[in-house]
Every structure is written in structure tokens, then in C-alpha cells.
Design a protein around this nucleic acid. Structure first.
Length: 579
RNA sequence: GCGCCCGUAGCUCAGCUGGACAGAGCAGCGGACUUCUAAUCCGCAGGUCACAGGUUCGAAUCCUGUCGGGCGUACCA
């Protein structure tokens, strides 16, 4: 929080829209308790659909009506009478419709919020929900078997936006990428590279591409690079280790390059192999001792020595699963559990997993095992899983079926290049909620790149930058604006609409952080850009013959600019001053 | 078969976690630049919120069933 010269904190608690609503709902609760002597956990505030219903709505009267045996309107009237004139920032309390209690903000409160936004960062009006606590966000976590594809791109963009959203409301965020650096998939990649390598160098030995091998062009390229680095003397299977490790390093480097394209960097790349020595055996021990009483959660297969099962049925899951094969290697589920246990033990207050829908089932198993180990409440409180559905790529009106192994997939890099802009790619992926299926129409994305939702928002920002430049030229400044005079100066229809919106946006951003739903930000940006463009079309800002009015309007423009910039920043999209 | 997600305008999708008359963008039609950027604005048209029941003051939202699509249902990750 920044300090003003006088030492007083600004913005004051009462200026933060989420806090104002918190106080409001507290006042309603107290009024209920005062009138009828019982407490209500949630009074249900929402934004009314129309300006004539005020700025904040409360539905509690309708919910209480049954319990109190009173018509909802009477409940509302009683509460409104109790609340009138008592709540800071609220000018009027009315009852409308079936029993809504509607609150209208003081004009002075709205102009103060706008002034704050004009002079400070957007984030200063967000509540400090995180309070400096540390959150760990895991996303992408694609295994190093090839370049990132379109699905990874959605997840990367989503995970990064969630991270930034959490940071915006006061969390310290660690970004982590978990990957499997050993096991069957890595062997397959090594073998696939070996097959292409031997094919290329044409030596005495040869190797057929495995049936489930990786057939992408990149495997050929990497094989060729390997040949030029190490010569043509490598043989299979003697050099299998080398093929595998070369593939892994090469894939990891490519993935980092792909992520760099989206400006994503992780604090930690966590290899599965780090868990195999200690964490996994320890987790198995712990699970073994955590049975619901009669039996241990881990049991040995009666027919195969050394094979271990996890009794997931006992934990409410549909089926028991093998966690260790008889040869002593683990199935993917077991390191996953150990990895999550490791994350919990590292002490993060919030652990967010961003996964594709194909990981849902595993994720549920992991959660069940963790609940057995740490207690359901603990897991419920600290672990949140965001599932996103797959992206269907549409090209020339036809769906493109994709698979990494079969090589008929579009890479993230191809996608960004074809769309022509990282910002547009990011933004388009964030216009849908994560659990919705998504058709990404390439032709449309390219074709629309000139008439795009992103540009619509960025254009509003650039227009404001133009106004600010003009203001400097004309010698108009908002420095000496008298706060007391603002409500009168900013009384037009468009100004009021803008200020109402500016006031509620920080609250809506805080809500979207709470819900881990960054797509709401794109909605808000569109709302704000629309309101600003409407204002711009109808209201002349810089008029040197009316300095006070110009200054007030300039202030409002800057509030819009900072809000747009702040929200675009959460999506990591650029805010250009010219277009 | 079973589990999870989804089904809203011609197309792609929102709908603030049960509230006030169902929204936006694109596509279509008609208007607005002598101005701080027209990458903009205004208007028109477009809907049985997949379907059928149920819960209640009130349902696109919650429950059940049906139909349709996706993902999973591995000792692959």
C-alpha cells in the first residue's frame, strides 16, 4: 500500500469496492439480528440489472420471507428502514420488485473511486485477499516428448492468467512445471529418435519405428541434429541411454522456447525422478498406515509378488489402482500422489493444479489419497483443481483431429504464427471459461485479427493515450481538480455509467480471482471498452475554454486507462499508446 | 456399460455461483467522420436457454430421466 506525504494510507479501506460491499453485507446482517434476533451467513449481494435499481442489490428479504412468515416486501421495507442513512458510501436505500433492497452509492464515493483509479494503479483498489501468503500454481506440465501443441497453449495461457490474477489480489505466486523424465514415454521418444537417426546415417544397424512411436517431423530434425553433433557411429541398443537423454534435453529446450514465446517462465521445473528415492516410498509407507481401520490402504497383489495396489475404493473412488509394478517401477499415479504430498509439505497456503480434462480421474484419485493422509478439511482448504476442456482446432470449416504421437497436430508456435500475434492468441483463449469446450477457428482468428475483441479494448486504451497527449498540448491538467466539485462536473449520462462501472470492476476482478476464472476479465474489459467508446463518441474531453470540466473528464479518462491497463496486465496483454 | 464436462441467436460464446424484461462479438440490413485516432458509435433483425418432469415466491442456473457431443474408464502420462 502506498503512503501519501501526510502519512495516511490511501486508498482507505472504505475506498476498496470489495470492502465497501463487505461492510454493506455486514450492516444488513446486523440489522437482521437486531430486528429478529438470528444471524444469516450470506445476505446475497449482486449487481442490479439496471441503473434505476441503484448500484448494489440484496436478495435476503425474499429468502427470509418464508422463515419469518412475512411477505418479502414487508421484510425488505423493515430492513430498508433500519438501514437508511446508516451505511457509509450509500446515499439511498429503496425497495423494488418482489423484495429487492437496493442501495445507491453517494456520487462523492463514485468520484473518489474514479480519482483513486486515475492517480494510482488499478491493483491498489483490489482487496488484499492473499495477504502475502504463498500460492503454488502448477500448469502445462507436459512431458518432454515434443513441442507444445494447441491444447498446451490453452493451458499455458490459463495457468499464467490465474497466477497473475492471484498476484493481483495479494498472493505471492510460485509457478511450477512438473514433468516425467523417465519411464515408457521417454524410452519411446529415444527409440523414435534412434529409428530416424539410423535411417538417416544408413549404417549397418537399423531400427523400425515403434508402433506407438513419435512420428512428428521434429523427431527427424532432432535425429539429424544428433547426427551432426555426435557423428554417425551411434548404435541401437548400446546407445539407448544417449538417445533417450538427448531426446529429453532437446524436448525440454524446445518447450522452454515455446513458453518463452508466451512470456511464461516457471520458478521450478520439477522432475518426477526427484521423488523416486525418498518421497514415493515414504508416501507408500504413510498410506499403508492410514487404513480406515480394518485394512491398510496399500496391499500386495495376491498373485504377483512386489506388485502393490492402492485401495481407492475405500476412499470413495470407483476402482483400486496399481501403484507399483512387480518389477519395482511405479505407475504414474503414485509419483503424482507423492508430488502433491511434497507440495503440501512445502507449506503453500494454496495449491492450484491446472489440468486438461483427461487428467480429471487421476486428479480425483490423488485428492482422495491426500485426504486420507492429511485430512479432508486440509485438502479441501488448500488444494484447488482447475480443469479445462480440450481445444478443437477448426481449419477450412473442418475439425482437425490431433495427437502428438501421430504427428498430425498443430504446434503452439504454428498457432501463434498463424494468428499473427501473441496477444491475440492469449486473449482469444481467455474469452471462454475453462470448462467449456472450445472451437478455435484458425481462419476466423486470422481473418478477424483486424476486427478483434483484443483490438477493440486496446483501441480504447490508445484513444485515451491520445487524449492525454492532447491535454498536454493544450495545457489542460487534472492535477488541481477539486474533489468536492467532481460529482457536479461528471453528471452526464455517459460519465455516470463509466463511474459506476469503474467502481464495480475491482470487485468483479477480486471475485474472478476467488473463482480462479480469468475469462471474466475479458468480459469486463469488453464492458469497459464499450462504455468508454460510447463516452468518447458523445463527450468532448479537452476544451481549453472550460478548464475545470476538461480536467474532471481527463481524470475520468485516466481512471479508464489505468483500469484497462491493469486488467490487460493480468492477462499479460499489451496496452499500446498508439495503434 | 459406468464416471466427469458440455448443449443458450445463423456461427463462436457470456450470463456475477437461484433473482428483476435472456446478453455480447462475428455474419446480415440501415444510418453517423470539418472534432481528443471511424480498429469507433447508433439503429433494425435474429431465442421453445437440447427435450421431459420435479424442487419454490422465482430456474438458463439446483435434482431426476431422455437425446446429442467431448474426455476418461491402463500395470501410457
Amino acid at each position: 500500500m502506498t503512503l501519501r506525504p501526510g502519512g495516511s494510507k490511501t486508498p482507505r479501506r472504505a475506498m476498496i469496492p470489495s470492502r465497501v460491499r463487505g461492510d454493506l453485507s455486514e450492516a444488513v446482517s446486523e440489522a437482521i439480528e437486531g430486528l429478529w434476533g438470528f444471524a444469516v451467513s450470506e445476505v446475497g449481494l449482486s449487481a442490479p440489472p439496471n441503473e434505476r435499481f441503484g448500484d448494489v442489490s440484496c436478495q435476503v428479504a425474499m429468502r427470509l420471507s418464508g422463515e419469518l412468515g412475512m411477505p418479502p416486501r414487508e421484510v425488505a421495507e423493515a430492513l430498508a428502514a433500519e438501514l437508511g442513512g446508516r451505511i457509509p458510501a450509500v446515499a439511498a436505500v429503496t425497495v423494488d420488485g418482489p423484495g429487492f433492497i437496493n442501495f445507491t452509492f453517494q456520487r462523492g464515493y463514485l468520484t473518489r473511486v474514479s480519482s483513486s483509479l486515475a492517480r494510482e494503479e488499478f491493483s491498489s483498489l483490489l482487496p488484499d485477499d492473499g495477504g502475502g501468503r504463498v500460492a503454488l500454481v502448477e500448469y502445462v506440465s507436459s512431458n518432454p516428448t515434443g513441442p507444445l501443441n494447441v491444447g498446451h497453449c490453452r493451458q499455458a495461457v490459463l495457468g499464467e492468467a490465474i497466477s497473475r490474477l492471484l498476484e493481483a489480489v495479494g498472493w505471492r505466486v510460485k509457478r511450477e512445471y512438473y514433468f516425467n523424465d523417465s519411464g515408457r514415454q521417454m524410452e519411446l521418444l529415444g527409440e523414435s529418435i534412434a529409428a530416424r537417426y539410423l535411417e538417416k546415417v544408413g549404417g549397418p544397424s537399423s531400427l523400425e519405428m515403434p508402433e506407438k512411436g513419435y512420428r512428428g517431423d521434429y523427431v527427424r530434425r532432432w535425429a539429424a541434429e544428433l547426427a551432426s553433433e555426435k557423428g554417425d557411429g551411434l548404435v541401437w541398443p548400446d546407445d539407448s541411454e544417449l538417445f533417450v537423454s538427448y531426446g529429453r534435453e532437446r524436448a525440454m529446450r524446445r518447450i522452454r522456447e515455446d513458453l518463452a514465446l508466451l512470456e511464461i517462465t516457471f520458478d521450478c521445473y520439477f522432475p518426477e525422478s526427484d521423488l523416486l528415492e525418498e518421497d514415493v516410498p515414504r508416501a507408500i509407507d504413510q498410506l499403508g498406515g492410514t487404513g480406515p481401520g480394518s485394512e491398510d490402504l496399500v496391499y500386495e497383489d495376491p498373485e504377483e509378488e512386489g506388485k502393490l495396489w492402492l485401495r481407492l475404493r475405500e476412499l470413495g473412488r470407483p476402482a483400486d489402482r496399481v501403484i507399483r509394478r512387480s518389477d519395482g517401477t511405479y505407475t504414474y499415479r503414485m509419483p503424482d500422489i507423492a508430488y502433491h504430498l511434497n507440495k503440501f509439505e512445502r507449506g503453500y497456503d494454496l495449491i492450484v493444479d491446472v489440468f486438461g480434462s483427461d487428467h480429471l480421474d487421476t486428479s480425483r484419485d490423488v485428492r482422495a489419497a491426500l485426504s486420507a493422509l492429511l485430512g479432508n478439511d486440509e485438502v479441501q482448504r488448500r488444494l484447488r483443481v482447475v480443469i479445462h476442456q480440450f481445444v478443437t482446432l477448426v481449419r477450412a470449416g473442418r475439425k482437425v483431429k490431433m495427437s502428438t504421437r501421430a504427428a498430425n497436430f498443430v504446434t503452439m508456435r504454428d498457432l501463434v504464427e498463424e494468428v499473427g500475434s501473441v496477444d491475440v492468441t492469449r486473449y482469444l483463449f481467455l474469452t471462454r471459461r475453462s470448462e467449456a469446450h472450445m472451437d478455435f477457428d484458425l481462419d476466423l482468428a486470422v481473418e478477424q485479427s483486424e476486427e478483434n475483441p483484443v483490438y477493440y479494448v486496446q483501441y480504447a486504451h490508445a484513444r485515451i493515450a491520445g487524449i492525454v497527449r492532447k491535454a498536454v498540448e493544450e495545457g489542460v491538467t487534472d492535477r488541481d481538480v477539486d474533489p468536492e466539485g467532481l460529482p457536479e462536473l461528471l453528471d452526464g449520462e455517459h460519465e455516470r455509467r463509466l463511474m459506476r462501472l469503474l467502481e464495480v470492476l475491482p470487485h468483479r476482478v477480486a471475485q474472478s480471482a476467488e473463482l480462479l476464472e480469468p475469462h471474466r476479465i475479458t468480459e469486463m474489459l469488453a464492458d469497459l471498452a464499450t462504455a468508454f467508446h460510447g463516452f468518447y463518441q458523445n463527450v468532448r474531453v479537452i476544451d481549453s475554454s472550460r478548464p475545470k470540466l476538461s480536467a474532471a473528464r481527463l481524470l475520468l479518462c485516466k481512471a479508464c486507462r489505468n483500469s484497462i491497463r491493469g486488467m490487460l496486465g493480468i492477462l499479460n496483454v499489451d496496452s499500446p499508446d498508439t495503434m
